[in-house]
């Protein structure tokens, strides 16, 4: 483990107390898998409970807001007579969902490019990063336009639960983008080799997970009125 592989703790060599493990040869483990692969799955399992809790709260509070604006229907303020449109903009969010889904495709191609040495890894990583950033851009646009339309995190239960849920998802996408930028930097510095497939795979698992969570949010929050 000398050169700058992105070494999360690499586990202790498990081989009998003989010579040190040769570089890049996978450590002997019970399942034959790298420790980090197991840890990331455990992490994703834990993250599932995080998003289940957030989404459940959103659904429990659906229709419970005492004042508008509301997600799917118009609302007229009885005190001022001011009318607010339905907040959610499904065409725009459908576009941002498409962008995020395409980023998963680019991620798969980036991983493929690394393990098959096609030399295009940096382009696919860059594509994934740009699509992820594009999704974040859509979210920033969405958040600011909602605020202009009169919905903030303080307005009502819908605002609190909506911004917290989608904000947490956006924060996860941001972490993913930073992670992919790190991989891109490594690739530009020394080139990702097939032996680095694992570290790309780890980020890909995280990236796809965040994508799947968005599909759940898009369906439950946006599409079902």
């Amino acid at each position: 483990m000398t050169t700058a592989t992105l070494t999360a703790d690499h586990g202790h060599t498990h081989g009998a107390g003989g010579a040190a493990t040769p570089e890049h040869q996978p450590h002997h483990t019970t399942l034959g898998l790298d420790h980090r692969k197991i840890a990331i799955w455990a992490f994703i399992g834990s993250e599932c409970m995080l998003f289940i809790s957030l989404i459940s709260t959103y659904l429990i509070y659906k229709g419970k807001s005492l004042v508008g604006p509301y997600p799917h229907e118009k609302w007229t303020d009885p005190n001022t007579g001011e009318t607010f449109n339905a907040i959610l903009n499904i065409p725009v969010t459908s576009a941002s969902t498409f962008v995020l889904l395409m980023s998963s495709l680019a991620m798969v191609l980036a991983h493929n490019a690394v393990i098959n040495r096609t030399g295009k890894a940096k382009w696919w990583l860059l594509t994934t990063i740009l699509l992820g950033t594009g999704f974040l851009g859509f979210q920033a646009y969405e958040f600011t336009s909602f605020v202009h339309e009169g919905l903030t995190i303080k307005t009502n239960l819908f605002g609190s639960s909506f911004f917290t849920l989608t904000g947490f998802h956006g924060a996860h996408v941001t972490v993913g983008v930073l992670w992919l930028c790190t991989l891109l930097a490594i690739d530009l510095k020394r080139g990702l080799k097939p032996e680095d497939g694992l570290i790309v795979d780890l980020s890909a698992l995280y990236w796809h997970f965040v994508d799947v969570v968005w599909i759940a949010i898009f369906t439950l929050v946006y599409l079902i009125p």
């Binding site: 409970m49 995080l50 809790s53 957030l54 709260t57 995190i153 009502n156 609190s160 639960s161 917290t164």
Partner: peptide, 25 residues
């Protein structure tokens, strides 16, 4: 731990947001 702690994390985030940012959870 990995399945139960995220739930209290969310409950505490709601409380934190209520206390610091004025949400309504």
């Amino acid at each position: 731990v990995i399945l139960a702690f995220p739930v209290i994390t969310v409950a505490l985030v709601f409380l934190l947001f209520d206390r610091f940012f004025g949400t309504n959870f």
